[in-house]
Amino acid sequence: MVTRLFKYEIRSLGRTMLPIWGVLGGIALLTRLIRFFESESTVYGVVFGSAVVALSLGIIAVAAMTVVTVIRRFYTNLYTAEGYLSFTLPVTPFQHISVKFWTAMLFTAASAVVAFAAFCVAFSGELLVEMWHVAIYYCRQMIEAAGPGRFVLYAVEFALIALCAAATFYLLVYACIAVGQMAKKNKILAAVGVYFAYYFATQILGTILIVFMIVLDGSAFMLAINDFINDYPNAALAIGIGYYLAQCAIFFGVTNVITYKKLNLE
């Protein structure tokens, strides 16, 4: 059943995302074509500049559309009229949420790959080789600073942090939507309200915690944290990943329990 859910999830998101990726690919190809006519002329400068602006906007649009499409799919497929079908299929809410989450992650990664590929296509040739050299130069500097073994660890940890941050964001939004759907009306507004309430609550709690620690033992606590990050950066990143994962588990759990126990398809 999970495989079948994946099939329909990928089809549905693909129906929206494939044309958007196609447009970005088109802009990238156009930018590359324009570069074949490279010259010092003002006309070339204006046309190429416009193409680069279009490409940048295209990449931003792909990022924004990925997030919007993924969230919209979650909401409409589970908590609007489409939910009448979704929740009468012989699958559990856990399977629905899991499949939607992993497909969201897959499409987010795919959008990142498409954006990177579009960039490479647009600037392929000498320009890309030059950029590649610059990237290698900075990588070498970082390897020298971190030590060769630790650099790989840093790279893995940063990649994991990025993935975990995306996962936490999606699962937080899922949880907010699940809480919002319990409202009698204005369910989307309720979900947005829950999101901001959570955001402000965590900010306020964090500030209170810091102030409390400063009051308790001056700046020693903050300095200790600072020292720990400087002395054990890999461990600090690992703690960050753990923190994200814990949040993911909580948000997933909240969404799952609400969908099991408090589904409200009025």
Partner: peptide
């Protein structure tokens, strides 16, 4: 109501519940 009952019950809602696309 759960996975077992959903494979036994065929339900027609009172609104359009299929993805129009």
């Amino acid at each position: 109501p759960g996975v077992v009952t959903k494979s036994k019950v065929s339900y027609l809602p009172d609104n359009n519940y299929l993805d129009a696309r």
